[in-house]
Write a protein that binds this DNA or RNA. Sequence first.
DNA 1: GTGGTCTAGACCACA
DNA 2: GTGGTCTAGACCACG
Lengths: 136, 136, 136, 136
Amino acid sequence: MARSQALMIEIATGDARPISKQIVDGIRMKVATGALALASQLPSVRGLAQQLGINPNTVAKAYAELTAEGWLESRQGLGLFVAPPRQRLSRAERDKRLDEAVSRFVHDVVALDLPAGEVLARLDLELQAFAPKKTA
Amino acid sequence: MARSQALMIEIATGDARPISKQIVDGIRMKVATGALALASQLPSVRGLAQQLGINPNTVAKAYAELTAEGWLESRQGLGLFVAPPRQRLSRAERDKRLDEAVSRFVHDVVALDLPAGEVLARLDLELQAFAPKKTA
Amino acid sequence: MARSQALMIEIATGDARPISKQIVDGIRMKVATGALALASQLPSVRGLAQQLGINPNTVAKAYAELTAEGWLESRQGLGLFVAPPRQRLSRAERDKRLDEAVSRFVHDVVALDLPAGEVLARLDLELQAFAPKKTA
Amino acid sequence: MARSQALMIEIATGDARPISKQIVDGIRMKVATGALALASQLPSVRGLAQQLGINPNTVAKAYAELTAEGWLESRQGLGLFVAPPRQRLSRAERDKRLDEAVSRFVHDVVALDLPAGEVLARLDLELQAFAPKKTA
DNA sequence: GTGGTCTAGACCACA
DNA sequence: GTGGTCTAGACCACG
Protein backbone atom coordinates (compact mmCIF):
# COMPACT_ATOMS: atom_id res chain seq x y z
CA MET A 1 0.00 0.00 0.00
CA ALA A 2 2.92 2.31 0.53
CA ARG A 3 4.52 2.17 -2.90
CA SER A 4 2.54 3.75 -5.76
CA GLN A 5 3.54 2.24 -9.05
CA ALA A 6 2.47 4.49 -11.88
CA LEU A 7 -0.06 7.07 -10.66
CA MET A 8 -2.21 7.09 -13.76
CA ILE A 9 -2.26 10.78 -14.44
CA GLU A 10 -2.63 12.05 -17.95
CA ILE A 11 -1.60 15.34 -19.42
CA ALA A 12 -3.99 16.44 -22.14
CA THR A 13 -2.26 18.71 -24.63
CA GLY A 14 -5.59 20.13 -25.73
CA ASP A 15 -6.48 21.08 -22.17
CA ALA A 16 -6.72 24.76 -21.43
CA ARG A 17 -5.36 24.27 -17.91
CA PRO A 18 -1.63 24.74 -17.32
CA ILE A 19 0.18 21.46 -16.94
CA SER A 20 0.92 22.06 -13.27
CA LYS A 21 -2.76 22.58 -12.56
CA GLN A 22 -3.65 19.39 -14.41
CA ILE A 23 -1.33 17.51 -12.08
CA VAL A 24 -2.67 19.22 -8.98
CA ASP A 25 -6.26 18.56 -9.99
CA GLY A 26 -5.53 14.97 -10.92
CA ILE A 27 -3.78 14.04 -7.70
CA ARG A 28 -6.18 15.98 -5.51
CA MET A 29 -9.09 14.17 -7.12
CA LYS A 30 -7.47 10.80 -6.52
CA VAL A 31 -6.86 11.62 -2.89
CA ALA A 32 -10.32 13.05 -2.35
CA THR A 33 -12.06 10.05 -3.88
CA GLY A 34 -9.79 7.58 -2.14
CA ALA A 35 -8.21 6.31 -5.34
CA LEU A 36 -4.93 7.20 -3.70
CA ALA A 37 -4.96 5.62 -0.24
CA LEU A 38 -3.87 7.38 2.91
CA ALA A 39 -0.12 7.20 3.52
CA SER A 40 0.64 5.86 0.07
CA GLN A 41 3.81 7.23 -1.47
CA LEU A 42 3.89 9.43 -4.51
CA PRO A 43 6.33 9.01 -7.40
CA SER A 44 9.47 11.11 -7.21
CA VAL A 45 9.56 14.47 -8.92
CA ARG A 46 12.03 13.24 -11.52
CA GLY A 47 10.17 9.98 -12.01
CA LEU A 48 6.79 11.57 -12.63
CA ALA A 49 8.35 14.25 -14.83
CA GLN A 50 9.99 11.59 -16.98
CA GLN A 51 6.82 9.50 -17.08
CA LEU A 52 4.77 12.48 -18.27
CA GLY A 53 7.47 13.88 -20.51
CA ILE A 54 7.45 17.29 -18.86
CA ASN A 55 9.80 19.58 -17.00
CA PRO A 56 10.64 18.43 -13.43
CA ASN A 57 10.12 21.99 -12.22
CA THR A 58 6.50 21.69 -13.23
CA VAL A 59 6.02 18.56 -11.13
CA ALA A 60 7.83 20.10 -8.20
CA LYS A 61 5.56 23.11 -8.35
CA ALA A 62 2.46 20.91 -8.34
CA TYR A 63 3.74 18.87 -5.39
CA ALA A 64 4.54 22.06 -3.49
CA GLU A 65 1.02 23.36 -3.99
CA LEU A 66 -0.54 20.07 -2.87
CA THR A 67 1.67 20.03 0.19
CA ALA A 68 0.78 23.62 1.04
CA GLU A 69 -2.90 22.74 0.74
CA GLY A 70 -2.40 19.84 3.13
CA TRP A 71 -3.16 16.97 0.75
CA LEU A 72 0.40 15.66 0.82
CA GLU A 73 3.16 15.67 3.40
CA SER A 74 6.85 15.05 3.04
CA ARG A 75 8.76 12.70 5.28
CA GLN A 76 12.37 13.68 5.62
CA GLY A 77 14.48 11.77 3.15
CA LEU A 78 11.74 9.32 2.30
CA GLY A 79 9.55 11.22 -0.13
CA LEU A 80 5.99 12.52 -0.36
CA PHE A 81 2.98 10.71 1.09
CA VAL A 82 -0.76 11.24 1.17
CA ALA A 83 -1.53 13.16 4.35
CA PRO A 84 -4.25 12.21 6.81
CA PRO A 85 -7.51 14.07 6.18
CA ARG A 86 -7.99 17.15 8.24
CA GLN A 87 -9.58 20.53 7.92
CA ARG A 88 -7.18 21.97 5.43
CA LEU A 89 -8.80 25.34 5.02
CA SER A 90 -10.62 27.68 7.37
CA ARG A 91 -14.33 28.15 6.85
CA ALA A 92 -13.74 31.74 5.78
CA GLU A 93 -11.10 30.67 3.26
CA ARG A 94 -13.37 27.99 1.87
CA ASP A 95 -16.27 30.41 1.54
CA LYS A 96 -14.05 32.86 -0.26
CA ARG A 97 -12.91 30.22 -2.73
CA LEU A 98 -16.43 28.95 -3.23
CA ASP A 99 -17.57 32.48 -3.98
CA GLU A 100 -14.84 32.87 -6.54
CA ALA A 101 -15.59 29.57 -8.22
CA VAL A 102 -19.32 30.25 -8.31
CA SER A 103 -18.82 33.76 -9.64
CA ARG A 104 -16.48 32.59 -12.35
CA PHE A 105 -18.77 29.77 -13.35
CA VAL A 106 -21.82 32.00 -13.58
CA HIS A 107 -19.95 34.59 -15.63
CA ASP A 108 -18.66 31.94 -18.00
CA VAL A 109 -22.01 30.29 -18.43
CA VAL A 110 -24.22 33.33 -18.78
CA ALA A 111 -22.49 34.03 -22.07
CA LEU A 112 -23.88 30.77 -23.45
CA ASP A 113 -27.56 31.62 -22.90
CA LEU A 114 -28.46 28.09 -21.81
CA PRO A 115 -31.47 27.25 -19.63
CA ALA A 116 -30.53 27.28 -15.93
CA GLY A 117 -32.11 23.88 -15.45
CA GLU A 118 -29.82 22.28 -17.97
CA VAL A 119 -26.76 23.84 -16.41
CA LEU A 120 -27.72 22.70 -12.92
CA ALA A 121 -28.50 19.18 -14.07
CA ARG A 122 -25.12 19.00 -15.78
CA LEU A 123 -23.36 20.20 -12.64
CA ASP A 124 -25.28 17.91 -10.34
CA LEU A 125 -24.18 14.96 -12.43
CA GLU A 126 -20.51 15.90 -12.26
CA LEU A 127 -20.53 16.74 -8.57
CA GLN A 128 -22.09 13.40 -7.60
CA ALA A 129 -19.25 11.62 -9.34
CA PHE A 130 -16.80 12.89 -6.75
CA ALA A 131 -18.62 12.26 -3.50
CA PRO A 132 -17.78 8.55 -2.90
CA LYS A 133 -15.09 9.29 -0.35
CA LYS A 134 -17.62 10.40 2.23
CA THR A 135 -19.70 7.24 1.95
CA ALA A 136 -16.79 4.83 1.75
CA MET B 1 -32.07 57.92 -26.41
CA ALA B 2 -31.53 55.71 -23.42
CA ARG B 3 -28.29 57.48 -22.55
CA SER B 4 -26.51 55.48 -19.85
CA GLN B 5 -25.38 57.80 -17.11
CA ALA B 6 -22.80 56.06 -14.98
CA LEU B 7 -22.92 52.32 -15.70
CA MET B 8 -22.20 51.13 -12.21
CA ILE B 9 -19.25 48.92 -12.96
CA GLU B 10 -16.64 48.49 -10.33
CA ILE B 11 -13.07 47.40 -10.62
CA ALA B 12 -11.92 45.34 -7.66
CA THR B 13 -8.15 45.55 -7.28
CA GLY B 14 -8.18 42.41 -5.19
CA ASP B 15 -10.00 40.50 -7.90
CA ALA B 16 -8.03 37.71 -9.55
CA ARG B 17 -9.59 38.52 -12.93
CA PRO B 18 -7.77 40.97 -15.20
CA ILE B 19 -9.35 44.42 -15.34
CA SER B 20 -10.57 44.02 -18.91
CA LYS B 21 -12.30 40.76 -18.03
CA GLN B 22 -14.02 42.38 -15.06
CA ILE B 23 -15.43 44.96 -17.45
CA VAL B 24 -16.49 42.34 -19.97
CA ASP B 25 -18.17 40.23 -17.30
CA GLY B 26 -19.88 43.21 -15.74
CA ILE B 27 -21.31 44.60 -18.94
CA ARG B 28 -22.23 41.20 -20.34
CA MET B 29 -24.20 40.47 -17.21
CA LYS B 30 -26.03 43.78 -17.40
CA VAL B 31 -26.94 43.15 -21.02
CA ALA B 32 -27.97 39.55 -20.41
CA THR B 33 -30.23 40.47 -17.51
CA GLY B 34 -31.69 43.47 -19.29
CA ALA B 35 -30.20 45.97 -16.84
CA LEU B 36 -28.75 47.56 -19.96
CA ALA B 37 -31.61 47.97 -22.42
CA LEU B 38 -31.41 47.08 -26.10
CA ALA B 39 -29.94 49.89 -28.22
CA SER B 40 -28.85 51.93 -25.23
CA GLN B 41 -25.53 53.67 -25.61
CA LEU B 42 -22.49 52.73 -23.57
CA PRO B 43 -20.17 55.22 -21.91
CA SER B 44 -17.38 56.33 -24.20
CA VAL B 45 -14.06 54.54 -24.07
CA ARG B 46 -12.32 57.59 -22.70
CA GLY B 47 -15.15 58.40 -20.32
CA LEU B 48 -15.33 54.97 -18.73
CA ALA B 49 -11.54 54.80 -18.54
CA GLN B 50 -11.47 58.06 -16.63
CA GLN B 51 -14.35 57.01 -14.39
CA LEU B 52 -12.58 53.77 -13.48
CA GLY B 53 -9.14 55.32 -13.34
CA ILE B 54 -7.66 52.98 -15.88
CA ASN B 55 -6.08 53.24 -19.31
CA PRO B 56 -8.46 53.84 -22.25
CA ASN B 57 -6.85 50.95 -24.14
CA THR B 58 -8.02 48.58 -21.44
CA VAL B 59 -11.62 49.72 -21.86
CA ALA B 60 -11.26 49.56 -25.64
CA LYS B 61 -10.07 45.97 -25.38
CA ALA B 62 -13.07 45.01 -23.28
CA TYR B 63 -15.46 46.75 -25.66
CA ALA B 64 -13.82 45.07 -28.64
CA GLU B 65 -14.31 41.67 -27.05
CA LEU B 66 -17.96 42.37 -26.29
CA THR B 67 -18.44 43.55 -29.86
CA ALA B 68 -16.79 40.42 -31.24
CA GLU B 69 -19.05 38.32 -29.05
CA GLY B 70 -22.09 40.10 -30.45
CA TRP B 71 -23.26 41.87 -27.29
CA LEU B 72 -22.43 45.35 -28.56
CA GLU B 73 -22.22 46.99 -31.94
CA SER B 74 -20.37 50.12 -32.93
CA ARG B 75 -21.64 52.95 -35.09
CA GLN B 76 -18.77 54.83 -36.60
CA GLY B 77 -18.19 58.16 -34.99
CA LEU B 78 -21.21 57.78 -32.75
CA GLY B 79 -20.30 55.24 -30.12
CA LEU B 80 -21.14 51.72 -28.96
CA PHE B 81 -24.66 50.41 -28.43
CA VAL B 82 -26.29 47.29 -27.02
CA ALA B 83 -26.92 44.96 -29.96
CA PRO B 84 -30.08 42.90 -30.51
CA PRO B 85 -29.75 39.45 -28.93
CA ARG B 86 -28.89 36.55 -31.18
CA GLN B 87 -27.63 33.00 -30.94
CA ARG B 88 -24.07 33.32 -32.17
CA LEU B 89 -22.57 29.97 -31.20
CA SER B 90 -23.43 26.54 -32.49
CA ARG B 91 -24.91 24.01 -30.12
CA ALA B 92 -21.69 21.99 -30.24
CA GLU B 93 -19.59 24.99 -29.28
CA ARG B 94 -21.86 25.89 -26.38
CA ASP B 95 -21.76 22.32 -25.12
CA LYS B 96 -17.99 22.36 -25.29
CA ARG B 97 -17.78 25.57 -23.30
CA LEU B 98 -20.29 24.33 -20.75
CA ASP B 99 -18.20 21.19 -20.33
CA GLU B 100 -15.10 23.26 -19.73
CA ALA B 101 -16.82 25.52 -17.22
CA VAL B 102 -18.33 22.59 -15.35
CA SER B 103 -15.06 20.70 -15.30
CA ARG B 104 -13.17 23.70 -14.01
CA PHE B 105 -15.77 24.41 -11.37
CA VAL B 106 -15.81 20.84 -10.10
CA HIS B 107 -12.04 20.71 -9.94
CA ASP B 108 -11.90 23.97 -8.02
CA VAL B 109 -14.67 23.06 -5.64
CA VAL B 110 -13.74 19.51 -4.85
CA ALA B 111 -10.64 20.89 -3.20
CA LEU B 112 -12.82 22.61 -0.63
CA ASP B 113 -14.37 19.40 0.66
CA LEU B 114 -17.82 20.90 0.97
CA PRO B 115 -21.07 18.92 0.83
CA ALA B 116 -22.41 18.74 -2.74
CA GLY B 117 -25.82 19.91 -1.56
CA GLU B 118 -24.45 23.17 -0.26
CA VAL B 119 -22.56 23.85 -3.45
CA LEU B 120 -25.57 23.16 -5.62
CA ALA B 121 -27.84 25.33 -3.50
CA ARG B 122 -25.34 28.16 -3.75
CA LEU B 123 -25.16 27.86 -7.51
CA ASP B 124 -28.90 27.56 -7.93
CA LEU B 125 -29.31 30.82 -6.08
CA GLU B 126 -26.83 32.64 -8.32
CA LEU B 127 -28.15 31.22 -11.56
CA GLN B 128 -31.76 32.15 -10.78
CA ALA B 129 -30.65 35.76 -10.48
CA PHE B 130 -30.18 35.82 -14.21
CA ALA B 131 -33.48 34.47 -15.40
CA PRO B 132 -35.50 37.74 -15.38
CA LYS B 133 -34.29 38.65 -18.85
CA LYS B 134 -36.61 36.10 -20.41
CA THR B 135 -39.69 37.47 -18.71
CA ALA B 136 -38.83 41.14 -19.03
CA MET C 1 6.79 18.48 -33.99
CA ALA C 2 5.89 20.24 -37.20
CA ARG C 3 7.86 23.31 -36.23
CA SER C 4 7.00 26.06 -38.69
CA GLN C 5 10.15 27.68 -39.95
CA ALA C 6 9.24 31.01 -41.46
CA LEU C 7 5.47 31.16 -42.05
CA MET C 8 5.59 33.10 -45.26
CA ILE C 9 3.30 35.94 -44.31
CA GLU C 10 3.83 39.28 -45.86
CA ILE C 11 2.75 42.70 -44.73
CA ALA C 12 1.87 44.98 -47.63
CA THR C 13 2.27 48.60 -46.59
CA GLY C 14 0.01 49.65 -49.45
CA ASP C 15 -2.74 47.33 -48.26
CA ALA C 16 -5.89 49.02 -47.00
CA ARG C 17 -6.29 46.38 -44.30
CA PRO C 18 -4.75 47.05 -40.90
CA ILE C 19 -1.58 45.08 -40.23
CA SER C 20 -3.17 42.84 -37.61
CA LYS C 21 -5.98 41.93 -40.01
CA GLN C 22 -3.47 41.05 -42.71
CA ILE C 23 -1.88 38.63 -40.27
CA VAL C 24 -5.22 37.18 -39.22
CA ASP C 25 -6.33 36.72 -42.82
CA GLY C 26 -3.02 35.22 -43.86
CA ILE C 27 -2.83 32.68 -41.06
CA ARG C 28 -6.51 31.81 -41.19
CA MET C 29 -6.18 31.05 -44.87
CA LYS C 30 -3.15 28.84 -44.28
CA VAL C 31 -5.00 26.92 -41.59
CA ALA C 32 -8.19 26.62 -43.62
CA THR C 33 -6.37 25.30 -46.65
CA GLY C 34 -4.19 22.98 -44.65
CA ALA C 35 -0.98 24.82 -45.51
CA LEU C 36 -0.52 24.98 -41.76
CA ALA C 37 -1.04 21.47 -40.42
CA LEU C 38 -3.11 20.62 -37.38
CA ALA C 39 -1.20 20.95 -34.12
CA SER C 40 1.77 22.65 -35.76
CA GLN C 41 3.33 25.42 -33.74
CA LEU C 42 3.20 29.04 -34.80
CA PRO C 43 6.15 31.41 -34.70
CA SER C 44 6.46 33.17 -31.36
CA VAL C 45 4.87 36.56 -30.92
CA ARG C 46 8.24 38.22 -30.57
CA GLY C 47 9.74 36.21 -33.40
CA LEU C 48 7.06 37.01 -35.93
CA ALA C 49 7.04 40.64 -34.88
CA GLN C 50 10.76 40.89 -35.51
CA GLN C 51 10.48 39.03 -38.80
CA LEU C 52 7.78 41.40 -40.02
CA GLY C 53 9.36 44.47 -38.51
CA ILE C 54 6.31 45.37 -36.47
CA ASN C 55 5.42 45.74 -32.82
CA PRO C 56 4.92 42.49 -30.85
CA ASN C 57 1.59 43.77 -29.53
CA THR C 58 0.27 43.84 -33.07
CA VAL C 59 1.13 40.18 -33.56
CA ALA C 60 -0.30 39.35 -30.15
CA LYS C 61 -3.56 41.02 -31.10
CA ALA C 62 -3.80 38.99 -34.29
CA TYR C 63 -3.01 35.77 -32.44
CA ALA C 64 -5.59 36.59 -29.76
CA GLU C 65 -8.24 37.08 -32.41
CA LEU C 66 -7.39 33.80 -34.11
CA THR C 67 -7.50 32.06 -30.74
CA ALA C 68 -10.89 33.58 -29.94
CA GLU C 69 -12.14 32.42 -33.34
CA GLY C 70 -11.01 28.90 -32.56
CA TRP C 71 -8.29 28.57 -35.20
CA LEU C 72 -5.44 28.50 -32.70
CA GLU C 73 -5.06 27.41 -29.12
CA SER C 74 -2.42 28.43 -26.63
CA ARG C 75 -0.54 26.18 -24.28
CA GLN C 76 0.78 28.12 -21.34
CA GLY C 77 4.46 28.77 -21.52
CA LEU C 78 4.84 26.70 -24.66
CA GLY C 79 3.33 28.72 -27.47
CA LEU C 80 0.44 28.74 -29.89
CA PHE C 81 -0.67 25.79 -31.99
CA VAL C 82 -3.16 25.10 -34.76
CA ALA C 83 -6.37 23.89 -33.12
CA PRO C 84 -8.52 21.01 -34.35
CA PRO C 85 -11.24 22.25 -36.71
CA ARG C 86 -14.73 22.73 -35.33
CA GLN C 87 -17.97 24.45 -36.23
CA ARG C 88 -18.02 27.38 -33.83
CA LEU C 89 -20.81 29.51 -35.22
CA SER C 90 -24.49 28.77 -35.46
CA ARG C 91 -26.09 28.45 -38.86
CA ALA C 92 -27.95 31.72 -38.29
CA GLU C 93 -24.76 33.58 -37.48
CA ARG C 94 -22.97 32.23 -40.53
CA ASP C 95 -25.90 33.20 -42.75
CA LYS C 96 -25.86 36.68 -41.31
CA ARG C 97 -22.15 37.08 -41.99
CA LEU C 98 -22.49 35.68 -45.49
CA ASP C 99 -25.26 38.19 -46.16
CA GLU C 100 -23.05 41.02 -44.99
CA ALA C 101 -20.09 39.90 -47.06
CA VAL C 102 -22.23 39.44 -50.16
CA SER C 103 -23.92 42.79 -49.70
CA ARG C 104 -20.64 44.58 -49.26
CA PHE C 105 -19.09 42.86 -52.23
CA VAL C 106 -22.01 43.69 -54.51
CA HIS C 107 -22.01 47.32 -53.43
CA ASP C 108 -18.29 47.59 -54.03
CA VAL C 109 -18.35 45.86 -57.37
CA VAL C 110 -21.40 47.47 -58.91
CA ALA C 111 -19.48 50.73 -58.83
CA LEU C 112 -17.00 49.24 -61.30
CA ASP C 113 -19.60 48.63 -64.00
CA LEU C 114 -18.11 45.26 -64.97
CA PRO C 115 -20.08 42.42 -66.59
CA ALA C 116 -21.50 40.10 -63.93
CA GLY C 117 -20.08 37.09 -65.75
CA GLU C 118 -16.54 38.35 -65.41
CA VAL C 119 -16.98 39.05 -61.73
CA LEU C 120 -18.44 35.62 -61.03
CA ALA C 121 -15.71 33.87 -63.00
CA ARG C 122 -13.08 35.77 -61.02
CA LEU C 123 -14.68 34.79 -57.72
CA ASP C 124 -15.17 31.19 -58.72
CA LEU C 125 -11.47 30.97 -59.45
CA GLU C 126 -10.49 32.35 -56.07
CA LEU C 127 -12.96 30.27 -54.09
CA GLN C 128 -11.88 27.02 -55.72
CA ALA C 129 -8.36 27.67 -54.49
CA PHE C 130 -9.56 26.93 -50.98
CA ALA C 131 -11.27 23.61 -51.47
CA PRO C 132 -8.20 21.29 -51.10
CA LYS C 133 -8.54 21.24 -47.34
CA LYS C 134 -11.51 18.89 -47.55
CA THR C 135 -9.70 16.33 -49.66
CA ALA C 136 -6.37 16.55 -47.83
CA MET D 1 -37.74 64.48 -64.83
CA ALA D 2 -35.33 67.06 -63.59
CA ARG D 3 -36.62 67.55 -60.05
CA SER D 4 -36.09 64.67 -57.64
CA GLN D 5 -38.66 64.76 -54.88
CA ALA D 6 -37.56 62.57 -51.98
CA LEU D 7 -34.78 60.21 -53.08
CA MET D 8 -35.88 57.23 -51.06
CA ILE D 9 -32.65 56.45 -49.30
CA GLU D 10 -32.70 54.83 -45.92
CA ILE D 11 -30.09 54.87 -43.21
CA ALA D 12 -30.05 51.62 -41.26
CA THR D 13 -28.76 52.16 -37.74
CA GLY D 14 -27.86 48.51 -37.44
CA ASP D 15 -25.78 48.64 -40.61
CA ALA D 16 -22.06 48.16 -40.16
CA ARG D 17 -21.27 50.61 -42.96
CA PRO D 18 -20.57 54.23 -42.07
CA ILE D 19 -23.48 56.50 -42.86
CA SER D 20 -21.64 58.25 -45.66
CA LYS D 21 -20.97 54.93 -47.37
CA GLN D 22 -24.62 53.96 -47.06
CA ILE D 23 -25.53 57.13 -48.93
CA VAL D 24 -22.86 56.61 -51.58
CA ASP D 25 -23.92 53.00 -52.10
CA GLY D 26 -27.59 53.87 -52.19
CA ILE D 27 -27.30 56.65 -54.74
CA ARG D 28 -24.76 54.81 -56.87
CA MET D 29 -27.08 51.84 -57.01
CA LYS D 30 -30.01 53.98 -58.07
CA VAL D 31 -27.96 55.60 -60.82
CA ALA D 32 -26.49 52.29 -62.00
CA THR D 33 -29.88 50.60 -62.21
CA GLY D 34 -31.55 53.62 -63.77
CA ALA D 35 -33.83 54.28 -60.81
CA LEU D 36 -32.34 57.76 -60.87
CA ALA D 37 -32.61 59.01 -64.43
CA LEU D 38 -29.84 60.79 -66.31
CA ALA D 39 -29.73 64.52 -65.62
CA SER D 40 -32.18 64.37 -62.73
CA GLN D 41 -31.35 66.70 -59.88
CA LEU D 42 -30.36 65.54 -56.43
CA PRO D 43 -31.67 66.98 -53.18
CA SER D 44 -29.57 69.69 -51.61
CA VAL D 45 -27.00 68.77 -48.99
CA ARG D 46 -29.00 70.46 -46.25
CA GLY D 47 -32.28 69.01 -47.49
CA LEU D 48 -31.07 65.44 -47.58
CA ALA D 49 -29.30 65.81 -44.25
CA GLN D 50 -32.50 67.06 -42.65
CA GLN D 51 -34.57 64.35 -44.32
CA LEU D 52 -32.24 61.64 -43.00
CA GLY D 53 -31.64 63.29 -39.66
CA ILE D 54 -27.89 63.30 -40.03
CA ASN D 55 -25.02 65.76 -40.15
CA PRO D 56 -24.84 67.82 -43.37
CA ASN D 57 -21.10 67.22 -43.49
CA THR D 58 -21.84 63.55 -43.94
CA VAL D 59 -24.05 64.19 -46.95
CA ALA D 60 -21.53 66.60 -48.44
CA LYS D 61 -18.83 63.99 -48.11
CA ALA D 62 -20.95 61.39 -49.87
CA TYR D 63 -21.81 63.78 -52.70
CA ALA D 64 -18.14 64.69 -53.09
CA GLU D 65 -17.18 61.06 -53.43
CA LEU D 66 -19.90 60.38 -56.00
CA THR D 67 -18.82 63.42 -57.96
CA ALA D 68 -15.17 62.36 -57.85
CA GLU D 69 -16.19 58.94 -59.13
CA GLY D 70 -18.08 60.53 -62.01
CA TRP D 71 -21.62 59.50 -61.08
CA LEU D 72 -22.74 63.04 -60.37
CA GLU D 73 -21.75 66.44 -61.71
CA SER D 74 -22.36 69.87 -60.33
CA ARG D 75 -23.73 72.70 -62.42
CA GLN D 76 -22.61 76.07 -61.15
CA GLY D 77 -25.21 77.56 -58.88
CA LEU D 78 -27.89 75.04 -59.85
CA GLY D 79 -27.03 71.97 -57.84
CA LEU D 80 -25.97 68.36 -58.42
CA PHE D 81 -27.21 66.21 -61.29
CA VAL D 82 -26.78 62.64 -62.46
CA ALA D 83 -23.90 62.66 -64.92
CA PRO D 84 -23.99 60.98 -68.33
CA PRO D 85 -22.54 57.46 -68.25
CA ARG D 86 -18.93 57.23 -69.28
CA GLN D 87 -15.88 55.22 -68.48
CA ARG D 88 -15.38 56.52 -65.00
CA LEU D 89 -12.39 54.43 -64.08
CA SER D 90 -9.43 53.16 -66.04
CA ARG D 91 -9.22 49.45 -66.68
CA ALA D 92 -6.23 49.20 -64.36
CA GLU D 93 -8.04 51.01 -61.59
CA ARG D 94 -11.09 48.81 -61.99
CA ASP D 95 -8.98 45.67 -61.91
CA LYS D 96 -7.29 46.86 -58.77
CA ARG D 97 -10.60 47.52 -57.05
CA LEU D 98 -12.04 44.23 -58.23
CA ASP D 99 -9.00 42.44 -56.82
CA GLU D 100 -9.48 44.15 -53.48
CA ALA D 101 -13.18 43.36 -53.32
CA VAL D 102 -12.63 39.73 -54.29
CA SER D 103 -9.79 39.33 -51.82
CA ARG D 104 -11.78 40.84 -49.01
CA PHE D 105 -14.81 38.74 -49.79
CA VAL D 106 -12.85 35.51 -49.92
CA HIS D 107 -11.08 36.28 -46.66
CA ASP D 108 -14.36 37.09 -44.95
CA VAL D 109 -16.13 34.03 -46.25
CA VAL D 110 -13.42 31.45 -45.73
CA ALA D 111 -13.86 31.95 -42.00
CA LEU D 112 -17.41 30.63 -42.28
CA ASP D 113 -16.48 27.25 -43.74
CA LEU D 114 -19.43 27.19 -46.13
CA PRO D 115 -19.51 25.15 -49.36
CA ALA D 116 -18.20 27.19 -52.30
CA GLY D 117 -21.26 26.29 -54.34
CA GLU D 118 -23.61 27.88 -51.85
CA VAL D 119 -21.54 31.04 -51.69
CA LEU D 120 -21.42 31.37 -55.47
CA ALA D 121 -25.14 30.74 -55.83
CA ARG D 122 -25.85 33.41 -53.25
CA LEU D 123 -23.60 35.89 -55.03
CA ASP D 124 -24.99 35.10 -58.46
CA LEU D 125 -28.47 35.87 -57.19
CA GLU D 126 -27.48 39.26 -55.79
CA LEU D 127 -25.41 40.28 -58.79
CA GLN D 128 -28.22 39.57 -61.25
CA ALA D 129 -30.45 41.92 -59.32
CA PHE D 130 -28.32 44.86 -60.37
CA ALA D 131 -27.78 44.24 -64.08
CA PRO D 132 -31.07 45.69 -65.54
CA LYS D 133 -29.52 48.96 -66.60
CA LYS D 134 -27.55 47.29 -69.38
CA THR D 135 -30.55 45.60 -70.89
CA ALA D 136 -32.91 48.58 -70.54
C1' DG E 1 -16.60 64.32 -30.08
C1' DT E 2 -16.55 58.83 -31.24
C1' DG E 3 -14.01 54.13 -31.78
C1' DG E 4 -9.84 51.63 -34.06
C1' DT E 5 -4.97 50.82 -34.77
C1' DC E 6 -0.15 50.94 -33.85
C1' DT E 7 4.10 51.64 -31.20
C1' DA E 8 6.92 51.38 -27.01
C1' DG E 9 8.02 49.49 -22.89
C1' DA E 10 6.86 47.28 -18.51
C1' DC E 11 5.36 43.27 -15.51
C1' DC E 12 3.25 38.75 -14.75
C1' DA E 13 2.51 33.49 -14.79
C1' DC E 14 4.01 29.25 -16.81
C1' DA E 15 7.56 25.81 -18.50
C1' DG F 1 11.93 30.98 -23.38
C1' DT F 2 6.41 31.41 -24.06
C1' DG F 3 1.84 34.21 -24.21
C1' DG F 4 -1.19 37.74 -21.55
C1' DT F 5 -2.14 42.21 -19.52
C1' DC F 6 -1.60 47.00 -18.66
C1' DT F 7 0.03 51.73 -19.35
C1' DA F 8 1.28 55.74 -22.20
C1' DG F 9 0.94 58.34 -26.08
C1' DA F 10 0.27 58.92 -31.03
C1' DC F 11 -2.44 58.94 -35.46
C1' DC F 12 -6.48 57.85 -38.28
C1' DA F 13 -11.48 57.83 -40.12
C1' DC F 14 -16.12 59.16 -39.14
C1' DG F 15 -19.76 62.54 -37.66
